[in-house]
Design a protein around this nucleic acid. Structure first.
Length: 692
RNA sequence: GGUCCCGUAGCUCAGUUGGAUAGAGCGUUCGCCUCCUAAGUGAAAGGCCGGUGGUUCGAAUCCACCCGGGAUCACCA
């Protein structure tokens, strides 16, 4: 049994506080094993896994096992004997109750095994515990490395809200993985040789009649006028789209331009590279506003020029993964047989990787890229530093010339690869995964994870607010899909600007005497919190129908609500500091005073304990979010935690509390809560302002 | 047509892998600042969990079939 008091002093106070902390995950694991062992020894039943759940109310305990039902079923199957689940639960109860950290066990309902932790012991032991203890491993070279690809916006225009969903999802997931101890490499794939870039190049060359120098001049004019290159390209791209509809000649130019870009080493390719690179810079700047960063920008041009595909092609041919079609409508193509199918209807063909003209499809290139990510291609990119973030962190970009040796960090070769790509690309992603698994069966399909998510669409009202004319038919639709080609979408920077402006107006009212810089900083933190939380509170497979009112809201379930809760928590400790008190004092008081049980058995006991136990569940919530590839789980938890803290804050006047023991408990619990909240928000990429 | 996703309160969404009285925000109605930040908080009203069958101690959750809505199935990327 964990105990407090004299024993703690024998071992030294700090050692006690730091080393005997048993997390909920650990307690849970011990209990699971105990249940399995008890089922074996008392009933001769082998349980493979035991489901543990959180009871609906604190009065029902801290952990529940609905295991007696399953046990009854298994006993009946084995012996034919019908047992009452409640009686089975009573037997298990006796076995589990002796475990340290468990105060008592109750059999409830039809046979639930409800576990009550030893509250005083738990609190004393976890008062100083790190809410995310594994996070430190994320910088440990011996930790397993994973790669996360996200953002990957075509570098021909500004990013819109749909791209931001991708990036926020990817960035948050990356933070979640790090919180579980994984080493993470973040890649933002740059499709700098695709049709979308070609389209904008066509616009510059044949609509605007500009050469590269003219574009550079334009770029400078734009920045002098406070405008951005990616916004200019956004409009130009839309104009090209309109022009294509009536101008066949221009459309033919596209094929020509695309060819030149792919080939490289010509003026058009140089111009395209300038356009693409400038757009990448703009998009990276936009994402930096949202605290989203990258390690490497792999480019399609290098996949072409370094012949990644050729290497993958050889491997696939040798292993018989792909087949050359000699007849039928796919004659002359290399295809990958996909799924069992009968017939040869239009929708039942194999996936073509190499066209009859010998060129490789996007999916083919993607397989080669995925092989590189997994470290099994047998080729590597060349690299150069692209830029440094203000804090010195480097971002690298790929290049194809090997003339100069550059010392660079190792890239690629991840144990698991997460690709954050919207659900519309599930089919090609499936092919990539299967193709890669065919080449490397030992790694298999599990090594490639498609982190898919539904699109962000516009409500008809939002589309009209952006100035788009809708037909009566469109107005009746549940949502309107955004389209870069049509120039229809909410640009990321516009939305962030509006959020910052709204937040600033409010900060001006609340803190008129604060320096302007600081006010802008707070407004920025609020804007980022609002946008990130807005995109994260939806689960991945929910279509977000964008609505300005909802997205700009600072009320209810928002990032701001969570931030505000943390700010209020911090103000308690600021006040304490003004009285020369620290959390450490309270922690020591806790151990020294011993009789915490009284506090928990008082009227407010359940209330205080609920706060403590909820805040202690961050680690398992993060694990769960990582396991299920679902950041929304963490977002929801964070909101619940903030709400619980607001209630706690409302019900207990901590600084004014006169009962010494209770006050120490309240301080320690408030501290656990604010650290959990701060860490949860940090994992969501949301900062806590100094004041709000 | 095949595959996949969605359908839960007036609206927007969660629902811990099959568990206890189905939750939250917005909106509506009525309350709470001599007190650590009211961007907060309490209460009320609001549900055929799309439908019908099935599986079992037990189903919003699993299975089958329907009904609505969406995505996807290129020698596009």
């Amino acid at each position: 049994m964990l105990s407090i008091g004299r024993k703690a002093y024998n071992y030294g106070l700090f050692a006690y506080l730091n080393t005997t902390a048993m997390t909920i995950i650990q307690i849970q694991q011990i209990l699971r094993e105990a249940v399995i062992a008890a089922a074996h020894s008392r009933f001769g039943v082998e349980l493979e896994q035991v489901v543990a759940e959180i009871p609906p109310r604190t009065e029902l305990g801290d952990l529940a096992f609905p295991v007696a039902f399953e046990l009854a079923k298994k006993i009946k199957q084995a012996t034919g004997e019908k047992k009452n689940p409640r009686e089975l639960a009573e037997v298990l109860k006796a076995e589990i109750e002796t475990i340290p950290a468990v105060a008592c066990v109750e059999v409830a309902g039809a046979g639930y095994l409800n576990i009550f932790f030893d509250r005083a012991a738990f609190l004393s032991a976890n008062a100083a515990a790190d809410p995310l203890p594994n996070r430190a491993l994320s910088t440990d070279p011996s930790s397993p490395k994973v790669c996360v690809e996200h953002t990957s916006v075509n570098p021909n225009k500004a990013a819109h809200i749909g791209h931001v969903r991708n990036s926020v999802l990817g960035d948050t997931f990356q933070r979640i993985l790090k919180a579980t101890g994984k080493r993470v490499e973040i890649q933002n794939y740059i499709d700098n040789t695709g049709v979308q870039v070609a389209d904008v190049v066509v616009g510059f060359l044949f609509i605007e009649n500009m050469n590269i120098d003219a574009i550079k001049d334009l770029d400078k004019e734009l920045s002098d006028a406070g405008q951005t290159f990616d916004y200019y390209c956004w409009d130009l791209y839309a104009r090209v789209g309109v022009e294509y509809q009536s101008n066949e000649a221009l459309k033919e130019k596209r094929t020509e331009v695309l060819h030149l870009i792919e080939e490289g080493n010509n003026e058009t390719a140089e111009l395209a590279d300038y356009v693409a690179t400038r757009n990448v810079e703009c998009i990276v700047d936009t994402m930096e506003r949202l605290s989203i960063r990258y390690d490497l920008l792999p480019r399609e041009s290098e996949i072409l020029h370094l012949h990644f595909w050729d290497r993958a092609f050889e491997q696939m041919k040798q292993l018989g993964v792909i087949r050359y079609e000699t007849e039928g409508k796919q004659a002359g193509c290399w295809v990958m047989p996909f799924e069992e199918h009968v017939g040869d209807a239009d929708n039942e063909t194999d996936k073509i990787l190499v066209r009859s003209n010998g060129t490789v499809t996007y999916t083919g290139k993607d397989i080669a890229y995925q092989l590189w990510k997994l470290g099994i291609l047998g080729l590597d990119f060349c690299y150069r530093e692209f830029f440094k973030y203000p804090d010195g962190r480097e971002v690298w970009i790929t290049r194809s010339d090997e003339t100069t040796e550059t010392v660079h960090p190792p890239f690629g070769g991840g144990e698991t690869i997460y690709n954050v790509i919207d659900t519309r690309q599930s089919y090609p992603q499936d092919i990539v995964r299967k193709g890669v698994a065919a080449i490397s069966p030992e790694r298999g399909e599990k090594a490639s994870v498609h982190l898919s998510y539904e699109m962000v669409a516009l409500s008809p009202a939002a589309a009209e607010e952006l100035g788009f004319r809708l037909s009566d038919e469109d107005r009746k639709r549940p949502f309107i899909e955004m389209s870069g080609r049509k120039g229809l979408g909410v640009k990321a920077d516009d939305l962030i600007d509006r959020l910052e402006a709204n937040a600033l107006a409010e900060v001006e009212v609340r803190h008129p005497d604060t320096p302007a810089d600081e006010k802008r900083g707070i407004a920025h933190q609020i804007a980022v919190g609002a946008l990130r939380y807005f995109l994260l509170k939806f689960t991945r497979n929910t279509v977000i129908v964008f609505d300005f009112k909802e997205a700009l809201s600072f009320e209810g379930e928002t990032g701001l609500f969570c931030q505000y809760s943390a700010v209020r928590a911090n103000s308690i400790f600021r006040k304490l500091a003004e009285q020369d008190e620290t959390v450490l004092d309270s922690r020591m008081d806790l151990v020294a005073m011993g009789s915490l049980a009284d506090v928990f058995s008082s009227i407010d006991g359940n209330d205080i304990w609920s706060m403590a136990i909820l805040a202690s569940r961050l680690e398992e919530t993060v694990e769960q979010a990582a396991m299920q590839n679902e950041p929304a789980i963490l977002a929801k938890y964070t909101f619940t935690l903030a709400k619980a803290f607001n209630l706690f804050y409302h019900n207990h006047k901590i600084i004014a509390e006169t009962d010494e023991i209770k006050r120490a408990v309240l301080v320690v619990v408030a501290d656990i809560a604010r650290r959990a909240l701060t860490n949860a928000l940090d994992t969501l990429g949301i900062e806590v302002p100094d004041k709000m």
